[in-house]
C-alpha cells in the first residue's frame, strides 16, 4: 500500500459502531453510582479529626508532664532550702556552744 492510499484511508469519514454512544453513557452512569464522592471525603474528615485529636491529646499529656515536673522541682527546691537551713543552724549552734565553753 502506498502512502497516498494510507492517507486517504485515514482521513476518510466513517461511522461509529452501532450502540457506542449508549454504551459510553451507561458506563458513565455505572462509574458515578459505584464511586460516589461523599464517602471518600468523609474518610478524609475522619482521618483529619483523628490526627487533630491525637495531637491535642499528645499536647495535653506533654503539658501535664512538664507541669508535674515543674511542681516537683519547685518542691525539691524548697525542701533543699529548708534542709540546708536546719543543718546549717544546728552546725552554728554547736559552733556557738563550743566558742562559749
Amino acid at each position: 500500500m502506498n502512502i497516498d492510499g494510507t492517507l486517504r484511508k485515514t482521513v476518510t469519514r466513517t461511522s461509529a459502531p452501532e450502540g457506542i454512544a449508549a454504551g459510553v453513557l451507561s458506563r458513565l452512569d455505572q462509574t458515578s453510582t459505584r464511586q460516589p464522592f461523599r464517602p471518600a471525603s468523609s474518610m478524609l474528615w475522619r482521618v483529619a479529626a483523628a490526627v487533630v485529636l491525637t495531637a491535642a491529646l499528645a499536647g495535653l499529656t506533654a503539658h501535664q508532664v512538664i507541669e508535674h515536673r515543674r511542681t516537683e522541682g519547685e518542691r525539691a527546691r524548697r525542701e533543699v532550702m529548708t534542709a540546708l537551713h536546719i543543718a546549717s543552724s544546728k552546725m552554728r549552734a554547736a559552733q556557738h556552744a563550743i566558742a562559749h565553753d
Binding site: 525539691a76 527546691r77 525542701e79 533543699v80 532550702m81 529548708t82 534542709a83 540546708l84
Partner: peptide, 30 residues
C-alpha cells in the same frame, strides 16, 4: 519537718535553684 531528697531529687532541685539569688546559689553549690 520531713525532708527526703535522694540524688535524683537533688539534681532536679539544682535545676530550679536560681543563680541570681545568693541564698539559692550557695545552696546549689552545697
Amino acid at each position: 519537718v520531713d525532708v527526703t531528697l535522694d540524688g535524683a531529687m537533688l539534681r532536679l532541685a539544682g535545676k530550679f535553684l536560681s543563680n541570681n539569688d545568693a541564698d539559692e546559689r550557695a545552696a546549689k553549690e552545697m
